[in-house]
Simulated assay, not measured.
Amino acid sequence: MNDEILSNPKSERVRRISSLARKKDRQAHGRFLVEGPQSVRELLAYRAELVETVYTTLGTEPWQREIDRLASDAGVRIERATPEVIAAMAETVHPQGVIAVARMWEADVAEVLAGARLVAILHEIRDPGNAGTVLRAADAAGADAVIFAGASIDPFHPKVVRSTTGSLFHLPVAVAESLETAVDAAQRAGLVTLAADVRGADLLEARAEGTLAGPVAWVFGNEARGLTEEDRALVGRSIKLPIYGAAESLNLATAASVLLYETAFAQRA
Rank of each mutant, 00 (worst) to 15 (best):
216 V>S: 10
260 L>M: 04
1 M>V: 13
125 I>F: 09
202 D>E: 14
240 K>R: 15
197 D>Y: 05
68 D>N: 13
208 A>D: 13
110 A>V: 04
106 E>G: 01
155 P>Q: 03
126 R>H: 12
177 E>H: 06
238 S>L: 12
90 A>G: 01
181 T>A: 13
267 Q>L: 06
102 A>G: 04
260 L>A: 10
43 L>W: 08
108 D>V: 07
70 L>G: 12
226 G>I: 05
26 R>Y: 10
143 A>M: 07
11 S>P: 11
36 G>K: 02
143 A>N: 03
142 G>E: 03
171 L>W: 04
211 T>D: 00
28 A>G: 07
100 A>E: 00
38 Q>H: 08
102 A>K: 00
50 L>S: 13
186 A>T: 10
74 A>T: 15
189 A>W: 09
180 E>K: 06
190 G>C: 01
100 A>C: 09
102 A>H: 01
75 G>E: 12
203 L>V: 13
185 A>W: 01
122 L>V: 08
80 R>W: 14
78 I>F: 12
240 K>S: 14
208 A>L: 07
64 Q>H: 14
44 L>N: 01
30 G>M: 01
161 V>A: 08
209 E>C: 01
26 R>S: 06
102 A>L: 04
91 E>V: 01
33 L>Y: 01
97 G>Y: 02
3 D>H: 01
206 A>K: 09
165 T>S: 12
11 S>Q: 05
